[in-house]
Design a protein around this nucleic acid. Structure first.
Length: 487
RNA sequence: GGCCCGUUCGUCUAGCGGUUUAGGACACCGCCCUCUCAAGGCGGAGAUCACGGGUUCGAAUCCCGUACGGGCUACCA
């Protein structure tokens, strides 16, 4: 089937997976799933200096964490491997040979210094800065002798000047037209024989039968160059779709200054993968303009390049947080617990989570906490007082416990709670009678109890919290707080 | 410099020539709910659709120009 959809995500392991790359991966993946196609992962590690196995491993981890799966690539194999460019050298050599014999590629003996000088001169004269094609017109004998002598050279594409403009029907930008005169005889293979990005990428996309190249906007002007290589190789030209960039909140390139840029960092801050996936998917694509919560399965069922936006988007951490909160709230209790427990154990408080010994207690805790957090890393702090004796913060002390009726409120509460049936409803009923008996406002009484028990003026709902804490703990904490009140 | 791309509320976007007094979401403000904080409900403010010309009975939507922003112009990807 030549019309089978085959797309690829081809990161360079020169760094971690960042937000922009993740979105590109997500779009490719969603497009493949939507069209019953194949999603291929290829590691473009031709830059040996900056590529590392650690980065590769981290990229794979982040992709998996996001919930993406690939049909071909590292860890899963496939018919078109290998999927690391550094392992595909032979393919590039053969492709270059073919282009040498067809004279689509020619050797260039200009030194780096010479090229730099030419660029300088061009810049100074205000002329186009592309390579001046000196070596393209060397006579055959000259070329042969230099090659035989082993003179270092790179191989350049002989741009077919007579071809006419390169027209690309981009799936998101529409018709793009590039004048052939503006096209440079760019380098295909370096003097050490290694392929450049624009060459390796084309050879691989061709051999891996990629049907749609969906990638970042920064590659837009590489497209006509690559089209020329596909044609020189006699291979079918894939469809292209270029995604606009993601910018930081200040409208500048997304960088560390704007906070986390790597997917891993969001994982560490307690974001849910489905929320990040959802947010990123909506940064440049929309289901209908109305829907903001788009779970993975809805994405893969509906994604289309037609609805991808042409303009760059600014990353908004606020909206991501909000979305994360909605996903957190939608989790069913057991799922919430599963995601929450690691965060309790690894928190500063090193809370000893004992889920297996009291699962129902945890299930009751979930609703108290899930609608009050936006990230999992906030959970430990919020639930700490259920697990350890809280220290009462200064503000709560002065604003609540030091107040006049505090002692009476606590003593009233203690008496009311002493013999009540221990469930939230009964606790509430009992405590609601305290204010009147001591001539205080309900709010003040409840707030005093809250501080005594949780150590803070802000906590999950009081009566439910008391129930979960247990009578002994609650009474002990109230007694402890009484000692702190003014006599 | 050359080539290419983009421009709708602060932000993400809907809109694909008339149904638009430009819709939704985040953020913001107010009210309700309420034991705090949230969550939720209701309401509000917020966009002369970058600007200027056309085309058309009619333009955010089509065309041209300008401005601003961005990308590429490497033996990086």
């Amino acid at each position: 089937m030549s019309d089978a959809v085959r797309v690829r995500f081809a990161p360079s392991p020169t760094g971690t997976l960042h937000l922009g790359g993740a979105r590109t991966a997500i779009y490719n993946w969603a497009f493949a799933r939507r069209n019953n196609g194949a999603f291929i992962l290829r590691i473009d590690d031709t830059d040996r200096e900056r590529s590392t196995p650690e980065n590769t491993a981290q990229i794979l981890r982040s992709l998996r964490w996001l919930g993406l799966d690939w049909d071909e690539g590292p860890e899963v194999g496939g018919e078109h491997g290998p999927y690391f460019q550094t392992e595909r050298h032979g393919h590039y050599v053969r492709a270059l040979d073919a282009m040498r014999t067809s004279r689509a590629a020619y050797p260039c003996f200009c030194s780096a210094a010479e090229l730099e000088a030419k660029r300088e001169a061009a810049r100074a004269n205000g002329v186009s800065m592309g390579y001046d094609r000196t070596c393209r017109t060397l006579d055959a004998a000259e070329v042969a002798s230099r090659l035989d002598a082993g003179t270092p050279c790179v191989w350049r594409l002989a741009v077919p000047l007579e071809r006419g403009p390169v027209v690309v029907e981009d799936e998101v930008r529409g018709t793009l037209e590039f004048p052939i005169e503006a096209m440079d005889d760019f380098v295909l293979a370096r003097s050490d024989g290694s392929p450049t990005y624009n060459f390796a990428s084309v050879v691989d996309d061709a051999e891996m039968a990629i049907s749609h190249v969906i990638r970042g906007d920064d590659h837009l002007t590489n497209t006509p160059r690559q089209v020329l290589v596909f044609e020189a190789l006699g291979m079918a030209v894939p469809r292209f779709a270029h995604l606009s960039m993601i910018w930081g909140p200040d409208g500048k390139k997304l960088s560390k200054r704007h906070g986390a840029t790597s997917v891993e960092a969001y994982q560490e801050q307690g974001y849910l993968p489905e929320a990040l996936l959802n947010y990123l998917a909506l940064l440049g694509w929309s289901l209908d303009g109305e829907t903001t919560v788009v779970p993975p399965e809805v994405l893969t069922a509906n994604f289309s390049l037609e609805r991808v936006s042409k303009n760059p988007a600014i990353f908004d951490p606020e909206k991501l947080s909000w979305l994360n909160g909605t996903y957190l709230r939608d989790l069913d209790p057991d799922e919430f617990i599963a995601r929450m427990l690691p965060w309790l154990e690894r928190s500063e408080l090193a809370i000893a989570a004992d889920f297996t010994s009291r699962p129902d207690w945890y299930r009751a805790l979930v609703p108290l906490i899930s609608e009050r957090v936006r990230h999992l890393d906030e959970v430990a702090d919020k639930v700490a007082f259920f697990f350890t004796e809280p220290s009462i913060d200064d503000a709560a002390l002065s604003k609540v416990l030091a107040k006049e009726g505090a002692r009476a409120a606590l003593e009233g509460a203690r008496a009311a709670l002493d013999r009540v049936v221990w469930n939230a409803a009964a606790i509430e009923a009992a405590l609601r009678e305290v204010p009147e008996s001591i001539g205080a406002k309900p709010k003040d009484v409840f707030q005093t109890i809250r501080v005594a028990v949780s150590g803070s003026t802000v906590s999950p709902p009081l009566f439910e919290s008391l129930e979960l804490l247990g009578r002994d703990t609650v009474l002990a904490r109230i007694d402890g707080a009484v000692a702190l009140t003014e006599r």
